[in-house]
Design a protein around this nucleic acid. Structure first.
Lengths: 223, 223
DNA sequence: ATTATAAATGAGTCGTAATCATTTTTATGC
DNA sequence: GCATAAAAATGATTACGACTCATTTATAAT
């Protein structure tokens, strides 16, 4: 019976998590009532606190599960044998679509980061999620499809930062998924291909020159 | 006396706003106590509610003021006569630096967006703020320094999305401002130049360099 | 001075997260 | 099966903090 007992407990925990996910999505974190979550999970209010220490920990569990599922979905969305660019395209599409579909939970995520006291942490499951991107990008670098002269974290911030902002824009405008966002992002990523060096054996790089000039201009306008 | 009266009221409102800004930054929205804000503003708790209907409205006012100040600062940080690239560089630097310096308030901003009920709004003052970017970019397009074939909003999302994510990365790693983030972003923006796509994949463009040099020479002979 | 109006106060109300003494359910030993 | 212990669940109660409002204090008007 130890087995069915355990299953019952897990089912209850699942019910609470599911109820919490719904209520948080519907009413937002502040609008969500613990009593309402308990009611929908069909347990007494006190029972919730046997599974989660407090409202914030419940919120964290909801967000945690969401990103864990998202990681699974992302991995499933990527064609194993495909090229690096193709995989990036697939990941970007999957990510944008998910952000739009589950906009409410994504918004709530920032809430889970802020732990009352101080330093906004990095959630473990999000760290796990971005590894999917890192793995693809690393393969691209290993295969020399992408150059190694930009730190991966910076490229990653372009990738996720752009998609997150685009998703917000689209949702606020009541538009849905827009493939042009993906195309645009992929075109940007052409920049990371090493081809430009081959074309330019002298090592002369216009962007570097322009940057140097910008620095000089900055200095000048400051003085 | 009507004048000094009004000044007193404004001073009180300012004191409350300032106290709220501090307390929200220190303790986060949930950690902030209205009693503490009142204490620091040197007013009774009830007085706060004469100026702001509730905690959330006070939060909105804090965030609103922050972005209004940021807009002022951004405009001040941009050299009027400079090239479009130069201005973008300045805006990006200013923005990244500000996000890092006032990370706490930036985090809190997302909280002000969420109005209990439902649809996450766009805050008016942020809309105002991004106009600074739009104006620069529009000038770039008008001057044919940038091509018009990508919607400005998409470019804007790359710009702010990347900087926001980068700022988070830097803060979480306890690193400060990193110029390479800006350089990287500016290099990406080379993609939006009309010349770079067709005839010059490396981005080398003698005329642009000569234009920049002319501007520098002009500046130098002025001083 | 007197009165009217506006502003400020803080003790008290009210809603909700969290607790905990009590009850119910489940597992174990004979 | 029954007795007993342990685990799980309950919901009335508590604690706490946002917000209110009857009262007091300050300011302006005549």
């Amino acid at each position: 019976m130890a087995d069915t007992q355990r299953q019952r407990l897990e089912a209850r925990e699942d019910a609470i998590l599911a109820a919490a996910t719904t209520v948080f999505s519907e009413s937002g974190v502040d609008g969500a009532r613990m009593a309402e979550i308990a009611r929908r999970a069909d347990v007494a209010e006190g029972t919730v606190y046997l599974y989660y220490k407090n409202k914030h920990e419940l919120l964290e569990a909801v967000v945690d599960r969401f990103w864990r599922e998202l990681t699974k979905g992302a991995i499933a969305a990527i064609s194993e044998g495909a090229s690096v660019s193709q995989q990036l395209h697939e990941l970007a599409s999957y990510h944008l679509q998910s952000l739009i579909d589950d906009f409410k939970i994504v918004e709530i995520t920032s809430r889970a980061r802020m732990r009352h006291g101080e330093p906004g942490r990095q959630l473990p499951q999000i760290r796990e999620y971005v590894r999917v991107f890192d793995a693809i990008m690393q393969r691209g670098i290993d295969l020399r499809e992408f150059s190694a002269d930009t730190a991966i974290w910076q490229i990653r911030d372009v990738f996720y930062g752009t998609l997150e902002h685009s998703a917000r824009t689209l949702v606020l405008r009541d538009q849905g998924f827009d493939p042009s966002v993906i195309d645009h992002l992929m075109r940007l990523f052409e920049q990371y291909r090493p081809s430009s060096q081959a074309d330019n054996p002298s090592g002369l790089d216009a962007s570097e020159i322009m940057q140097a000039l910008s620095r000089i201009e900055t200095k000048l306008s400051q003085s």
